[in-house]
């Protein structure tokens, strides 16, 4: 019995002492931002606007999930934005131009991301190219390929539309939940994209906390050499982490294509920075070893809530960048403070 007690009391203790502090802080920040905007504008805390915020978080949130894994290994992935675009274009090509079934097109889109991530991983772990450089290269390669592939239809760079496949847009923008929620909240028209974000987050959280891959992600980020000396095939697992990150980018690609009802080949540059910002605000340390999915999701929500709120307040947009930037710095500084104390 005594051991059982110990087992249950111990994690609570450690959680309070470590990660939870920042997670709580980030969550508190989100609440504060929310409350402040609610007071400042009657249009902020409406059901529709909240759904808008959720929807605006979907793509960046899913990208950030993948980036979380990579950053926990003390790596970085700059290619997520353009890999997302490449995946979107691949889905467009298969579904819209080649007329393949939608599920197959989605699978190909997601797998495109996985393959790009796998290549990132191989370059990093086998060829020993630093992650920053390897993924910077992949960022450009994916961007170029997305543009090239988009010329296949007409010979000029052109978005690929999904007008012939109305089902595709419904995937993200339709709502499987609405019929279920209708009796309780008839207005609450929660798009599938939001649902997918949450399901993806749950999967990611499960992988990070409960699976071998998650364990080695943390172990590698905490002490790569020690992990290697423990007999873990570090190169292989690292590759897997980047492939997983790429898979999330692929999913984000399908999501953005569905939302915009088109694969926009010129999009995606700069999305990686928003994703990294979300991860960092969520308390994941760039030096590796620690980070949580919940934190990342909160971080992504902080960014989109701020963006939305400042728009609603009609604050000049330039200031939005200033505010987001300050929050990123503050989040990292708090992380440093916390670590210095412990």
């Amino acid at each position: 019995m005594a051991t059982a007690e110990k087992v249950f009391s111990a994690p609570r203790q450690t959680i309070l002492r470590s990660n939870a502090a920042q997670k709580l802080l980030a969550f508190a920040a989100l609440i504060v931002i929310f409350v402040v905007f609610s007071f400042l504008s009657p249009f902020f805390a409406t059901t529709e606007n909240i759904v808008g915020i959720l929807l605006a978080t979907a793509v960046n949130g899913v990208l950030a999930l993948g980036v979380t894994f990579v950053i926990v290994t003390a790596g970085i992935d700059l290619s997520v934005g353009t890999v997302m675009t490449l995946s979107a274009v691949m889905t467009g090509l298969t579904v819209s131009l080649a007329g393949w079934p939608v599920p197959l097109g989605i699978l190909i889109g997601v797998l495109t991301g996985s393959v790009a991530g796998l290549i990132n991983g191989l370059i990093i772990s086998r060829m020993r190219v630093p992650p920053f450089i390897a993924t910077l290269g992949m960022m450009m390669v994916a961007r170029g390929l997305a543009l090239v592939l988009s010329t296949l239809e007409t010979g000029t760079i052109k978005p690929i539309y999904f007008n012939d496949v109305p089902l595709f847009r419904q995937l993200m923008m339709g709502s499987v939940l609405s019929p279920l929620l209708a009796p309780v909240a008839p207005d609450f028209n929660l798009p599938n994209a939001v649902l997918i974000l949450f399901v993806a987050a749950l999967v990611a959280a499960f992988v990070l906390a409960k699976t071998v891959l998650g364990r080695y992600t943390v172990a590698i980020g905490s002490n790569e050499e020690a992990t290697r000396l423990s007999g873990v095939g570090v190169a292989g697992w690292k590759t897997a982490v980047y492939a997983l990150g790429g898979t999330f980018s692929g999913l984000a690609g399908v999501m953005i294509a569905s939302r915009l009802n088109s694969a926009q080949p010129a999009l995606g540059v700069g999305y990686e920075l928003d994703a990294i910002a979300a991860v960092v605000i969520g308390g994941t340390s760039l030096s590796g070893g620690q980070g949580t999915i919940l934190g990342t999701i909160i971080g992504a929500f902080i960014i989109s809530t701020l963006t939305n709120g400042l728009r609603i307040m009609n604050v000049p947009q330039e200031w939005q960048f200033v505010v987001t930037g300050l929050i990123v710095i503050l989040a990292v500084y708090l992380d440093i403070l916390r670590r210095r104390r412990s």
Partner: peptide, 16 residues
Amino acid sequence: NLMNHLTLAQNVFVGR
């Protein structure tokens, strides 16, 4: 050669 961010049990069994 311990991984600071893992628990003792996780450290003992890392890799297997």
